Amino acid sequence: MSALQIKRADGILTVQDMGRPGHLAQGLSRGGAMDRLALLEAAALLGARAPLAAIEMAGAGGTFAVTGPLRIALTGAPMAASLDGAPLRWNASHALLPGQILRIGGAQQGVYGYLTPAGGIATEPWLGSRAAHLTIGIGVVLAAGAELPLGPDPDPGRPARALTAAARFGGGTLRLFDGPQTALFDRRVIEAFYATAFRRGPRGNRQGVQLEAGERFTTVQAKGLASDLIAPGEVQLTGDGVPYVLMSECQTMGGYPRIGTVLPDDLPIVAQAPPGAVLHLRRLTLTQALAAHRPEADVLRDLAGRCQPLLRDPATIPDLLSYQLIGGVTRGDDLDRA
């Protein structure tokens, strides 16, 4: 079995997949990748039928090596990447060989980058997932010296592919539908909330992301509100009226009022928004939200159809002269005879 070796870790590196849905009753939130779309993009590039366990790199990557030949995909927040010093295109698949060194630098845009092996990371699953859930102590932050087992590549000869990533690395518009406590807020508060241009605040992690604005959004009707179930995407307002978008490792119960819920399709925009990025909000009815939402299986199928062969720049191919660029030699008259 091949392995992925971490020679150096510069960012916060963890193993992530699509998480563990269905365990709220046991007090366990879904967890998984902050940018789920990045794992779908990686699956499309690698020809996988479903998302694979990957390394999520928050802020920066590191230095990596492999013990056997394999393919990888680099997706999510663009980061400067090179293989033995030769630059690699982001949002593309690449082949790695033993002895080569893969270097991934800091995020040039966005927050979370992803390194996905074609066979997926094959650490021991727990409740059907390999995702680290740091809030409750599942898994660890990866450090230099870690060696991760990999699953077999189902299609090792598949040519390298590239894909244009959806724009989501500098803020944008979030579509929301009403939450469980929207009706507790005065109409003027709701109108002001949706008219505000928020910035991604300085506070944020895998549990939630702060939306920053000069205005506060409160309601006296929330006094004594009973705690109930909460989930990723819900916009929760603290006691002083500051909104937070709950993310993959959010708590499972909460008593703060929720003014709305971000459409799951737009959570990658929240995850990848760097501090200071502008986020606009747009209110949808439930009917509109259901019509706008796309199942992840449909998204993966669409992404797979948009993948293109990766065209390499000859100037970046150090062993260009070793390739046979001419398949044969002819005098020309043989073509006339044919």
Results as ranks from 00 to 15, higher is better:
15 V>F: 01
108 Q>V: 02
106 G>V: 12
256 Y>I: 06
34 M>N: 04
220 V>L: 14
136 I>H: 11
71 R>G: 07
242 V>T: 14
309 P>N: 08
267 L>P: 04
214 G>C: 03
89 R>L: 15
142 L>S: 01
135 T>M: 09
310 L>M: 06
258 R>G: 01
84 D>R: 07
217 F>V: 09
97 L>T: 08
261 T>R: 06
11 G>K: 07
185 F>C: 07
222 A>E: 13
43 A>V: 08
30 R>D: 06
226 A>D: 09
270 V>R: 05
200 R>A: 13
210 Q>I: 09
127 L>R: 09
287 T>K: 12
252 T>D: 13
167 A>I: 12
52 L>P: 01
107 A>K: 01
130 R>F: 03
83 L>M: 09
97 L>A: 12
73 A>V: 02
330 T>L: 11
137 G>A: 02
256 Y>H: 10
282 R>G: 02
155 D>M: 12
289 A>W: 07
43 A>E: 07
181 Q>E: 13
36 R>C: 02
141 V>H: 01
193 F>G: 00
148 L>H: 00
81 A>P: 00
338 A>I: 10
12 I>Y: 09
282 R>F: 11
246 L>V: 14
79 M>C: 13
13 L>T: 01
319 D>T: 13
313 D>H: 06
235 V>R: 03
221 Q>L: 15
240 D>M: 10
171 G>L: 03
183 A>R: 12
136 I>K: 13
30 R>Q: 15
95 A>Y: 06
189 V>W: 07
322 S>C: 10
127 L>W: 04
184 L>T: 07
338 A>C: 10
222 A>H: 07
20 R>H: 08
233 G>E: 14
297 A>Q: 12
51 P>Y: 11
207 Q>S: 05
331 R>I: 09
70 L>K: 00
83 L>D: 02
231 A>P: 00
99 G>Y: 10
86 A>G: 11
1 M>W: 00
173 T>F: 05
106 G>P: 07
50 A>E: 14
129 S>L: 01
149 P>K: 02
159 P>L: 13
70 L>M: 15
217 F>R: 05
78 P>M: 00
65 A>K: 14
130 R>A: 08
120 G>Q: 01
83 L>K: 01
145 G>V: 03
81 A>T: 10
309 P>G: 06
